[in-house]
Amino acid sequence: MKLINWWPPMLGTGIWLSYVSPRLDEFRVKMHLRWFNKNLIGIHYGGSLYSMCDPWYMFILTANLGKKYLVMDKAAAIRYLKPGRGTLYCTFRLEQEQISAIRSEIDEIGKKDYTFLCEIRNKEGEIVCEVDKVVYVRKKDFDWDAFNAKNQKDRVS
């Protein structure tokens, strides 16, 4: 998994995966401030801050739900709270109970969007930036025809 550090979007922004839990339910990343990831006023570039949060919840769910489920990043919202200087850190974790609850819910309803809060922190532990990540999860054998028929029926009613 740590080969992702050499994937161009990570390498090019200076994002470094520093920890992966054995169950693939926790990832920790860091990003040093370098000449190639700072903006015009000398702080972390916003796109790099977002990139710190991009794939991790999708990875956690894909690894833990298994092959019967499709997991995709769907949307994000970013809030800058203070200037990002120096090395920044972010931890992404889902408890096994959360993963089991998501699996049960998807088994029952077929598909759903989940929103996860990512908090990017500086070395003092202060939150520099928050990113809401929306991740789409569905069963691979989801019955789109039945879903569309139900929605059509609900619109007519």
Results as ranks from 00 to 15, higher is better:
Leu3Met: 14
Leu3Lys: 15
Ile4Tyr: 10
Ile4Trp: 13
Trp6Val: 03
Trp7Met: 09
Met10Thr: 09
Leu11Pro: 06
Thr13Gln: 12
Trp16Glu: 14
Ser18Met: 07
Ser18Asp: 12
Tyr19Pro: 05
Tyr19Cys: 07
Tyr19Arg: 14
Tyr19Lys: 15
Val20Ser: 06
Ser21Ile: 01
Ser21Asn: 00
Pro22Thr: 01
Pro22Ala: 13
Asp25Leu: 09
Arg28Tyr: 02
Val29Tyr: 07
Val29Trp: 07
Val29Gly: 04
Arg34Asn: 08
Asn37Gln: 00
Asn39Phe: 01
Leu40Pro: 03
Ile41Pro: 02
Ile41Arg: 07
His44Glu: 00
Tyr45Asn: 11
Gly46Cys: 02
Leu49Arg: 05
Leu49Lys: 11
Tyr50Ser: 04
Cys53Asp: 01
Asp54Trp: 08
Pro55Cys: 13
Trp56Gln: 09
Tyr57Phe: 13
Tyr57Val: 05
Phe59Lys: 08
Phe59Gln: 13
Ile60Phe: 00
Ile60Glu: 00
Thr62Asn: 06
Thr62Tyr: 09
Asn64Thr: 03
Gly66Lys: 14
Lys67Gly: 03
Tyr69Trp: 06
Val71Asp: 11
Val71Thr: 02
Met72Leu: 15
Asp73Met: 09
Lys74Tyr: 12
Lys74Asn: 12
Lys74Gln: 14
Ala75Leu: 08
Ile78Asn: 05
Arg79Gln: 15
Lys82Gln: 15
Lys82Cys: 01
Pro83Arg: 06
Gly84Pro: 00
Arg85Pro: 01
Gly86Phe: 08
Gly86Arg: 07
Leu88Arg: 08
Cys90Leu: 11
Thr91Ser: 11
Glu95Ser: 14
Gln96Ser: 15
Gln96Val: 06
Glu97Met: 12
Gln98Leu: 07
Ile99Val: 03
Ser100Gly: 07
Ser100Leu: 14
Ile106Ala: 01
Asp107Leu: 12
Glu108Leu: 10
Glu108Ile: 03
Glu108Pro: 04
Ile109Cys: 10
Lys111Arg: 12
Lys112Asp: 00
Asp113Val: 06
Thr115Ser: 07
Thr115Arg: 13
Leu117Glu: 08
Leu117Thr: 05
Leu117Pro: 04
Leu117Asp: 03
Cys118Pro: 08
Glu119Ser: 14
Ile120Met: 01
Ile120Pro: 00
Arg121Asn: 04
Lys123Thr: 02
Glu126Arg: 08
Ile127Tyr: 05
Ile127Val: 14
Ile127Asp: 05
Ile127Leu: 08
Cys129Pro: 04
Val131Trp: 00
Asp132Thr: 06
Asp132Asn: 15
Val135Asn: 03
Val135Lys: 02
Tyr136Gln: 10
Tyr136Gly: 09
Arg138Leu: 14
Asp141Trp: 03
Asp141Ile: 01
Asp141Leu: 05
Asp143Thr: 06
Ala146Asp: 14
Ala146Gly: 10
Phe147Asn: 10
Phe147Asp: 15
Asn148Pro: 01
Asn148Trp: 11
Lys150His: 10
Lys150Asn: 09
Asn151Asp: 09
Asn151Thr: 07
Gln152Asn: 13
Gln152His: 11
Val156Ala: 10
Val156Asn: 15
